[in-house]
Amino acid sequence: MNHALVSLACHAYVVAALVYLVYLVRQMDALATGGRVLVGTGLALHAVALVGLFGAQGGRPVGVAQGFSTFAFLLLTIFLVVDVCYRKPVIGAFITPLAVAVLMPGLLLDPGHVMSPDVQRPLLPVHITIALLGVAASAVATGVAVMYLLMERQVKGKRFGLLFSRLPSLEFLDTLNRRLAVLGFIALSVTLVTGAFFSSAAPGFFWTWTSKQIATLVAWAVFAALVGARSFGGWRGRRVALLTMTGFCLLLVSFLSSYDFIHVGGGAH
């Protein structure tokens, strides 16, 4: 049932991605509205499925398939908020395909093996959800950074083609990137703090030099540097966009190393 709902949501996202890509070429308001409605519908279905799943699992995603699914859900939720706030539907052409790509493993990996793992820890659902929110925020920030780099190429290279006429202004993309990076940074900070609590609660495992911990810490450092350099060093534009992408790649490593791929679905978080 839940799997069917996620599959249905995925169909909605795929159609939304196509609609947004068409919007990139032919800017019609109806397409923007259509994309928004499709994403909204998909998210509603997706939410029902996730609530159903998590209810039985102590309020958190378990296993890599659900991890990807939740990641995609949060990613599109952030996008929808951005879309409603700023009314720049063209961002959808870059974010929705990314969300579909993220959701695919969630659908294709076998969810059958998922079982409620070890002991219940009260902070775990918060830790995981916020960690995923951080990854999702940095994913959207990366999408926006890609848009920035593309637009900067057009503006600098004086290429006045389709992208030039469709993409939002450099300043808008830079500001949006900043806001998303701040969101990502806060989420990551909370993740680290709750993670520390959570690890120290398990005897003898405060810092274990796992690839996940290292990648998360380095990613946090990158985002901290990014937010700091912006606020105090006046950094902006391309450098920040590239840093955002670096931070996201590190987070992706951290995210993937949270799961034991050999025993799909068997990982803790």
């Binding site: 057009q154 503006v155 939002p168 202004s169 450099l170 300043e171 808008f172 500001t175």
Partner: peptide, 14 residues
Amino acid sequence: MASAAVSLASKVFD
């Protein structure tokens, strides 16, 4: 030309 210049500015600034 002046108005075209303003359109260009709108691609840099929001």
